[in-house]
């Protein structure tokens, strides 16, 4: 283990998982936490069928405004989506802010207005919050934390550990948009990227999917660490193998081009408005149809299937007919020259 916290510990890949396992899970012993799903789900008392879901997330993105969104919109979507990924209908959110001395109030207002608009679109209320201000230089303009609570409908039981051999792997649309939209704004890289972040709330999409067919085993939004990291998390949690057809994974031409330019891999680029669903084979057609009718699922596609072979590993069938391991992201994905 490194002796200090590294930037790469925040990448969502293996180093992040090491930190969670070796520091947090060592001390926080709750079995609900140990499930390591996007949200914790529990039944208040054995008598009631009602299952509660709770999640929390912090947002420290730079730049705080990017094509297709801002840190405020992201703070709502991220938490709403984590609730949706356990099948919960999001009800209430908290919102707490750490502001750097000197942040223009006009920026703050623009961010808060954006949070309000996104909460309305997702049909949730922000019911409590907190604000702290730190000396200039002790925070990067603004940090936001949001927590969310929701109710999981009766009969819905979605978790990263539920995948079964024979299940189908569905992706709700093209990957890499958020990661590249943000990276294009980073100082030192300076390229103009024609597409916007895909940042969007997915709770209504998940509701439509559940209405079409309840046999959804896993749901996860591939944010930091990208599609490859999410698939590896699900394969490990469910102790199954996952096989993906590279040619079926939709990557927009501009994302593909920017990745070639920077020497990074679109399978590891962040998404903020996409989900991976692992569903029973019999439920595939109904769920695909429902997703494609929804504005955030127009380009939904089946990209692979679950197998009992090589549990914990994700195998990619390349466009040339070979197959290779699609590993989880190690540290952060840095542009390279060679």
């Amino acid at each position: 283990m490194a002796k200090e916290v590294l930037l790469a510990h925040g990448s969502g890949g293996k180093l992040t998982h090491d930190l969670i396992r070796n520091v947090f899970l060592k001390h926080f012993r709750s079995p609900l936490l140990a499930m390591r799903d996007d949200a914790a789900v529990w039944r208040h008392s054995s008598s009631t069928e009602v299952q509660w879901a709770l999640t929390t997330d912090s947002y420290v993105i730079q730049p705080i405004f990017f094509p297709g969104g801002d840190i405020g919109k992201l703070a709502i979507c991220g938490t709403v989506n984590d609730l949706a990924m356990v099948g919960a209908q999001p009800l209430y959110l908290t919102a707490s802010f750490i502001l750097e001395e000197g942040l223009p109030l006009s920026d703050l207002e623009q961010i808060v207005a954006s949070m309000a608009r996104t909460a309305d679109e997702a049909g949730v209320e922000i019911i409590t919050g907190d604000t702290k201000v730190v000396d200039r230089g002790n925070a990067d303009q603004i940090f936001i934390n949001t927590a969310g609570v929701g109710i999981v409908p009766k009969g819905v039981h979605i978790s990263g550990a539920n995948a079964q051999p024979g299940d189908v792997v569905i992706l709700s649309g093209p990957i890499g948009l958020h990661g590249l939209a943000v990276m294009s704004q980073r100082e030192g890289l300076r390229f103009s990227f024609p597409l916007h972040s895909d940042c969007a709330p997915l709770n209504s999409l998940v509701a439509a999917m559940l209405q079409a067919d309840m046999r959804i085993h896993c749901l996860r939004d591939p944010t930091r660490g990208g599609l490859a990291t999410t698939l590896n998390e699900l394969a490990a949690q469910s102790q199954v193998g996952i096989e993906i057809e590279e040619a079926r994974v939709p990557i927009p031409e501009s994302v593909h081009a920017a990745c070639e330019l920077l020497g990074i891999d679109a399978f590891y680029a962040a998404n903020e408005g996409k989900l991976v669903a692992i569903v029973a084979p019999e439920a595939e057609s109904a769920i695909l149809a429902a997703m494609r009718r929804h504005p955030h699922g127009r380009e939904t596609v089946t990209i692979g299937h679950v197998t009992a072979a090589h549990p914990g590993k994700v195998i990619l069938h390349t466009t040339l007919g070979a197959h290779r391991i699609l590993d989880m992201l190690a540290g952060a994905q840095l542009p390279r020259i060679c």
């Binding site: 390229f191 103009s192 990227f193 031409e253 501009s254 081009a257 330019l261």
Partner: peptide, 8 residues
């Protein structure tokens, strides 16, 4: 221009 991506 590189498939829509622009850079100087």
């Amino acid at each position: 221009d590189f498939s829509g991506v622009r850079r100087r």
